[in-house]
Simulated assay, not measured.
Amino acid sequence: MLNRAVQNRKGSGVLCALFVFLLGAMPAEAHFFSIIPDTTLHAVPVGREHQAKLSFTEEFLKVQAGAAHLKLGSDIFSARFLYKDGTSQNFPAFKDHDEPGAGVETGTDSHVSRAVLNKEGTVILEARVNKVPYVPSPKMKMLYWGYSKQILNAKADGLSTKSAGGGEVLEIVPMSEVAEFSVGKTVKFKALFKGNPLPKAEVEWADQQSPSVIGDEGPTNTKEIAKTAADGTFEFTIKHAGYNCFGIMHGIPVSGADRNFDYSATTLIVDVPEASASSEKSGGSGCNSGFGIMLLAAVAASGLIGGRRSSRF
């Protein structure tokens, strides 16, 4: 991963903090621009307003404080709904957001916007932050692209298996219907970079049960689970119901330009359903309700959600 390639670079002050945020200081502490889903919400009714919350994160599903240091304007963030009929719906302008009591230091920790979901079927919520320039030192210049995608209201209608990035970004695409994901099932994905398969990319993952640990840069819960094959594909066996997040970072040296590197990061967020009553009776794979309750209790008892963030990004 690109954070390993630059783990020995050092800077100073806030610039160094951002550099470390973007590139990382040790394996399995990758940093992603990502949608932060509401983990209590498992469907968005048609006609209901939905909030898109965007943040930079080291611990999937959790916001990270400190974006205020960069003085990033909310106008660099964008999001839209993509519907199965091929139409799209843009979110209005984003606003800086601070979440009191979220276990993070005061300051901008995320960016939010709201839009009404207007159509039935699978919906892709996609979000972007484009071309964030950064100069950690006179010898190091870079541009950072971030792309994140969440599958909402998953149905077996084909939309969840389609690329949504338009050939402009790094993207993870499920190769089978997200509506048919279940605990214990091995599913396949493809990583695309600007529309082409991305080989040898390290894939990181976390779900709602992933333990949080304190690394050199604060709480992290991601784990490397695969490297993409020559055709950009990788497989993963689903461990738990609930929200699962997959992420990839990719860095490319740039020569003869006004920068040294281009960096792209992406996340894919899917919600794996609990087993239905019929599948429990038939012995199908998945979490039964009793086991689901035990998992939730274990998460609450372990305090995985806690942990104070530093304001280094």
Rank of each mutant, 00 (worst) to 15 (best):
S148M: 06
A297F: 08
G290C: 06
A25L: 09
A25I: 09
L82W: 01
A154H: 05
G165C: 11
V129F: 06
G167A: 11
A297Q: 09
A229E: 07
L192K: 12
H240K: 15
R308M: 14
T237L: 02
D109Y: 05
G306T: 13
R309I: 03
E99C: 09
A277D: 08
L2T: 02
R309Q: 13
K149C: 04
C16K: 15
A93P: 00
K131W: 14
R9P: 00
F313M: 11
G242N: 10
K155V: 15
F234W: 00
H250Q: 09
D207Q: 04
I76Q: 09
S88V: 13
S34N: 10
G167I: 06
H111W: 09
L192Q: 13
S278W: 06
A275N: 13
Y134R: 09
R309G: 14
V187F: 00
L61F: 14
H250C: 03
N196I: 12
V299P: 00
E204H: 04
H50E: 11
S279L: 15
E180G: 04
F56L: 14
L70F: 04
Q7M: 14
N3P: 01
K194H: 10
N130V: 13
K200C: 03
T228S: 07
E274C: 08
L23D: 01
K95P: 02
K95H: 07
V132M: 15
G107H: 06
D216K: 15
D271R: 07
